[in-house]
Every structure is written in C-alpha cells, then in structure tokens.
Simulated assay, not measured.
Amino acid sequence: MVVDGVDNEIKKSALELIGNTPIIALDRIHPGPGRILAKCEFMNPGASIKCRSSMHMIERARESGQLKPGAPVLEVTSGNQGCGLAVVCAVLGHPLTLTMSKGNSVQRAIHMEALGATCIRVPQVEGTYGNVTLNDVKAAEAEGLRIVEETGAYYVNQFNNEANAQSHYETTGPEIWRQTGHHVDAFVATVGTAGTFTGTSKYLKEKNPNLACYVVEPSGSEPIKGEPITKPLHLLQGSGYGCVPNLFKFDYMDGTLSVTDEESVKYKKFLGEKEGLYVGYTSGANVAAAVKLLESGLVPRDAWVVTLLNDSGLKYTPVPEELT
C-alpha cells in the first residue's frame, strides 16, 4: 500500500491478509531422505485454507451481478468455509447465515458468530459429535436451501462452485511453485469439496507434468480410490464425505493414500510437539500421508513432497482418549 508516495506495510482490510502464507520444512518430523514442505494455511485470517475460496467465490459473485452490494449470503459448511466467508462478508458488508451439522466442533460456530455471522447448527441424522457423515451434511444442506427459498439469499454452493477450485489455481498453486523455487516432486492433500486439490494440482501439473499428485482419504471412506465405504465416521472434519465431489477431476490425480484416525492424531501431535504448530486433524492426515508417500517407493527417496496445514487446532474439540 502506498500513502503519500511512501510504500508501507499497512493493510487496508482483513482481505489483504488472505493467501501468501509461508511454507515450512517439517525436518523435525521427517529428517530425510526427501523433504516434507507444508503450506501454513492456518495463518489466514479465518484460520484455514478456506479463506482463499471464500474471497474468490464472493468476489466473482459480486463481479457477475449475482450478489448485489449489501445482499444476504448463505452457505452450508463444516465450519472452515463458514469462517472464511464470515471474514469476507464482514469486510464487504453482507449479512451471512451458515448452516452446519451439530457434529462439527462447536468452536467453529463460536468463531463464525464472533465475526458477525448467524450459525444454525442442524441436528445430526447419522453421525456422532466430531464424526460427520454425508447424510449429516445433506441435512444441513436441506436446511440451508429452505432458508434460501424463504429469504432469497445468495447461495455460495461451495461443492459446485467452479470459483472454489479456481481460487487455488490462481493462488495456492502459484505460491507453492514460487516458494519452492519450482522444486516440487509431489503434492498430497485431503479432499472435501475438492476445490483445493483440483485447482492446486491443475496448476502444478501444468508447470511440471511429471509432478505426482495424491489424494489423502480417511481409511474406510475412500470413494476416490473406488473402495466401498466401510467407515463413514472418522475424525477428518470437512473431508472424506464418502462421495466423489463434483469439483474433483481424476485427470489431476496420480493415486490415493489412506490414513487412519490414529495416524492423523499421531501426526497432529507430532506437528505440535516437534514443529511447534498447533493444527487440525486433516493437517495431521496430510503429513502422515506425505511420510507414507516418501516411504512407499512411489516417488524418489529424495523427493520434495508439498502438503497443506489446513487449519488451526483451536477449531477442534479434544480427541477421544482411546485414540491418544
């Protein structure tokens, strides 16, 4: 920002805090051979990677005229998209309503409402607290669509919004490519809406067609791998819903990696105790998968594997004792 001809570091709003997150080497967790590099997405103002797609989807809707200035917005969320949208809507002046399964951690509802949004927590139909199934998401969606019909609010529709994936094609992928000095051998990521994986992988593969991209799925809920769903309940909130998302593109995938709840908890704990990073369960799963990939022989032993630390650990209820 330039003021009176002088360049300074003052940001105009929280929107300028979105993206350009640092990338960190996890050399204490994995000293080699090879290297795990992780993008610190918990450092976005909404404390997750979803701030990127939130800003992109709202800006595209405003530019197209679908969303008028000051008009209400509604979204169905597991929490992170809602927090990102709450940041964006607070700055741009849009009333925001969010529907979320009661199975998602209450910390997320507290976060969204602290940013001025209204969060409606919808009773679960199948899962348990901390374990959200596809049917629980559908229940939250049904309530959201009812409110859209009643109020005429703009429905963001992250699972089917192409601007979701485009945000990562335009920001996450290019940042990774630049920050690593164009040295990326593999990219691994969990999949919720598939916006992050699709957009980032598309960009990276355009830069290097030999770069390997792997989807991380919770063990027992691996539809992208083509396996039957045997464990719809798992700890990876916001991912592994037991279906292949509409935004997912098999063209950008080289394979899948399965991670158990126990492995996710183990590496979530390692990230805190070895690297000083307090993050969520999908971040633990991403790092567990990166370690597995380096040990699998599927990539060179000295490969650089890039992954994502999706959100802050402050968004979660403590893990059940039996998994610690």
Results as ranks from 00 to 15, higher is better:
residue 53 S to Q: 13
residue 47 A to W: 13
residue 182 H to F: 13
residue 52 R to F: 01
residue 25 A to V: 10
residue 290 A to H: 07
residue 220 G to P: 06
residue 156 V to M: 14
residue 168 H to V: 01
residue 197 F to R: 03
residue 89 C to Y: 04
residue 217 E to S: 01
residue 56 H to T: 05
residue 150 E to D: 14
residue 294 L to N: 04
residue 99 T to E: 13
residue 237 Q to M: 15
residue 266 K to Y: 13
residue 301 R to E: 11
residue 191 V to L: 03
residue 18 I to A: 03
residue 254 D to K: 05
residue 52 R to I: 06
residue 17 L to T: 04
residue 225 K to V: 03
residue 213 C to V: 15
residue 82 G to H: 04
residue 110 I to Q: 14
residue 72 P to Y: 02
residue 235 L to H: 04
residue 47 A to F: 14
residue 125 V to G: 11
residue 169 Y to I: 11
residue 156 V to T: 04
residue 97 T to F: 00
residue 132 V to M: 12
residue 224 I to Y: 01
residue 12 K to P: 03
residue 290 A to S: 12
residue 112 M to I: 12
residue 265 V to A: 01
residue 224 I to A: 07
residue 323 L to K: 09
residue 268 K to A: 13
residue 212 A to D: 04
residue 56 H to R: 15
residue 279 V to N: 00
residue 321 E to P: 11
residue 38 A to C: 01
residue 35 R to N: 04
residue 58 I to C: 00
residue 227 E to Q: 15
residue 231 K to P: 01
residue 56 H to W: 09
residue 102 K to L: 09
residue 25 A to K: 13
residue 4 D to A: 15
residue 263 E to I: 08
residue 18 I to H: 05
residue 192 G to A: 05
residue 283 S to H: 10
residue 103 G to R: 01
residue 230 T to W: 07
residue 237 Q to L: 15
residue 296 S to Q: 04
residue 62 R to Q: 15
residue 247 L to V: 03
residue 99 T to M: 12
residue 281 Y to C: 12
residue 17 L to H: 11
residue 193 T to I: 08
residue 88 V to K: 00
residue 61 A to R: 02
residue 295 E to P: 00
residue 74 L to Q: 01
residue 164 N to K: 05
residue 115 L to N: 08
residue 94 H to N: 08
residue 68 K to Y: 00
residue 206 E to L: 07
residue 85 L to V: 08
residue 320 P to R: 11
residue 243 C to Y: 12
residue 47 A to R: 14
residue 89 C to I: 10
residue 83 C to W: 00
residue 97 T to E: 02
residue 82 G to Q: 07
residue 201 S to Q: 06
residue 115 L to K: 00
residue 182 H to L: 09
residue 149 E to F: 06
residue 130 G to F: 11
residue 174 P to Y: 12
residue 161 N to H: 11
residue 283 S to D: 08
residue 142 A to N: 12
residue 68 K to N: 01
residue 130 G to W: 08
residue 313 G to P: 09
residue 29 I to N: 14
residue 187 F to T: 05
residue 261 D to L: 09
residue 232 P to T: 09
residue 297 G to N: 00
residue 169 Y to A: 05
residue 286 N to Q: 04
residue 108 R to F: 11
residue 71 A to Y: 03
residue 211 L to Y: 02
residue 273 E to A: 14
residue 318 P to N: 06
residue 315 K to D: 08
residue 69 P to I: 11
residue 148 V to K: 15
residue 283 S to F: 09
residue 242 G to E: 07
residue 102 K to M: 14
residue 163 A to T: 15
residue 131 N to Q: 13
residue 185 D to F: 11
residue 2 V to Q: 13
residue 284 G to S: 10
residue 168 H to I: 00
residue 69 P to F: 08
residue 154 Y to H: 12
residue 175 E to M: 10
residue 281 Y to A: 09
residue 292 K to Y: 06
residue 304 W to H: 14
residue 175 E to N: 06
residue 95 P to T: 04
residue 283 S to G: 09
residue 106 V to L: 14
residue 103 G to T: 11
residue 139 A to H: 05
residue 156 V to A: 13
residue 296 S to D: 10
residue 174 P to R: 07
residue 72 P to W: 05
residue 46 G to C: 03
residue 144 G to M: 08
residue 264 S to N: 07
residue 107 Q to Y: 13
residue 206 E to Y: 07
residue 95 P to K: 01
residue 292 K to P: 05
residue 287 V to K: 07
residue 281 Y to Q: 10
residue 163 A to Q: 12
residue 114 A to R: 13
residue 266 K to M: 12
residue 248 F to R: 02
residue 288 A to H: 07
residue 247 L to I: 03
residue 267 Y to M: 07
residue 324 T to S: 10
residue 81 Q to L: 15
residue 42 F to T: 08
